[in-house]
Design a binder for these strands. Structure first.
Length: 428
RNA sequence: GCGAGCGUAGCCAAGUGGUUAAGGCAGAGGAUUGUGGUUCCUCCAUUCGGCGGUUCGAGUCCGCUCGUUCGCCCCA
């Protein structure tokens, strides 16, 4: 192709798809609003440092997936690869902690990671996420998880499962990490190359390797849940009990570790079997250390993010998106009539009807064909004869009934007109 | 970064060495110069992602390249 195309890993969301996106946003917005979450909008790029410190230098996201560049002032900037770091930065920068209590925030927008695109994964993708800052209470974890489940359910999604785990506090994880290294080191030869590599760098990540040999070795590996301190254990028990009480079903997955360094205690993923290799639609957890890590006061926090492309993939498996249809399709021909039609269209719109004005100037026959295809409820016809008398033909496309009516009269009683439209829509 | 598959019109496609690149949808015009969803007619790719090679001859074979899809890594 000689012409310019969208960059690898990016794509256009065309009109036939935008209604799905709008539906997701409006469902999420209303559920979050009822739970007292407030929207926050942060910049799409930040100082590179923020992500390096927040997400962790050893993670793949920071190590090889960031879109980083120098600006004209020689500052290193990065297109945000996830939403939490920016929200926490704003939380600290604006002293939101000073307002006391708990901050419940949500956001949505594009994220960027330099990866090879595949099913459910792009370089520019969109997330909708929440961050609950300022509570250690296990109820905060349970509430956040329940709300995520609510949003997915309200959208009609089924066959999702919630995988849950606790990775404890920093000390717990340190102890477990050592135990895992001790166990795996003698088995090094049986591990796949990637896992062998991670043994020194990031041993926890070996747990979710897809390699069968590695998985076999892991069968006998120590379980992280047995390395939790009594306090961490109690905390995890509380979260589980609260989810039970809420009727949220989950499976414990002791192999579930997340890829970003900031997680502590509760971690979870909501997965689908219908997404190919990238099964996770929503993921999150607790991150009690991140706010201090980024220079703020000690603040406990939980959050999650939904991958919107993946969500919409699932939605479209349920039902193809539908095109919005218009009340009136306005057909006109002849100079005077075309001018009157433009005015009539505007007046109808001001009266809150939806109107599509045919601009083609082609023969009436062609315009009718388009009226039909547009799915409009009724067609308005304005030709020389109507222009002369300031009237318009009103034709109900379902029945073919047609009457002449003065333009002024059409606009004089919008309520009756609206009822007629509804009646026509309901008639099969 | 690695592996595999695939690139023919706006979309779905047939074609697997001989040249006039099927067909369908969508689109444009007409039969019907002011009445749709049916029908009928006409038009709609000097060219097969790009470049180079093999051959008398390439959409078809080979090489490279770009794009895309799926998988690995990793993640939402």
């Amino acid at each position: 192709m000689g012409s310019i195309q969208a960059l690898r890993g990016t794509r256009d969301i065309l009109p036939e798809e935008t209604s799905s996106w709008q539906r997701v946003e409006s469902v999420a917005r209303s559920i979050l609003g009822r739970a007292a979450y407030q929207e926050i909008r942060t910049p799409i790029f930040e100082q590179t440092d923020l992500f390096e410190r927040g997400i962790g230098e050893a993670t793949d996201v920071v190590g090889k997936e960031m879109y980083s560049f120098k600006d004209r002032g020689d500052r290193s900037l990065t297109l945000r690869p996830e939403g939490t770091a920016g929200v926490v930065r704003a939380f600290i920068e604006h002293g939101l902690y000073a307002q006391g209590g708990v901050q419940r925030l949500w956001y949505t927008g594009p994220m960027f990671r330099y990866e090879r695109p595949q099913a459910g994964r792009q370089r520019q993708f969109h997330q909708l996420g929440v961050e609950v800052l300022g509570s250690v209470d296990p109820r905060a974890d349970a509430e956040a998880i329940a709300i995520a489940a609510d949003i997915l359910r309200a959208l009609g999604l089924k066959d999702l499962h919630l995988a849950l785990n606790s990775i404890g506090n920093t000390d717990d994880r340190q102890a477990y990490r050592q135990a895992l290294i001790d166990y795996l080191t003698p088995h090094q030869a049986e591990l796949d190359a990637d896992s062998r590599d991670r043994l020194s760098r990031n041993p926890l990540r070996i747990l979710d390797s897809k390699d069968v040999g590695t998985q076999a070795v892991l069968q006998q590996a120590p379980n992280i849940l047995e390395y939790l301190s009594p306090a961490s254990q109690t905390r995890f028990e509380q979260v589980k009990k609260l989810l039970d009480t809420l009727g949220v079903t989950y499976q414990i997955d002791a192999r579930l570790v997340r890829g970003l360094d900031y997680y502590t205690h509760t971690v979870f993923e909501i997965q689908s079997d219908n997404l190919g290799a990238q099964a996770t639609v929503c993921a999150g957890g607790r991150y009690d250390g991140l706010v201090t890590e980024l220079g703020g006061p000690a603040t406990a926090a939980v959050g999650w993010a939904i991958g919107l492309e993946r969500l919409i993939l699932l939605l479209q498996q349920l039902q193809p998106s539908m095109v919005t249809k218009v009340d009136f399709y306005l057909v006109s021909r002849g100079e005077a009539a075309e001018a009157q039609a433009l005015v009539l269209a505007q007046k109808l719109r001001q009266a809150e009807f939806s109107v599509e004005l045919d601009l083609s100037g082609s023969a009436f026959g062609k315009q009718f064909k388009r009226a039909d295809r547009s799915g409009a409820v009724a067609c308005l016809i304005l030709g020389d004869a109507e222009a002369e008398t300031q009237t318009v033909q009103l034709k109900w496309l379902k029945t073919g009934d047609q009457t002449a009516i003065a333009q002024a009269e059409l606009l004089s009683d919008p309520d009756t007109l609206r009822q007629q439209i509804i009646r026509s829509l309901n008639a099969s």
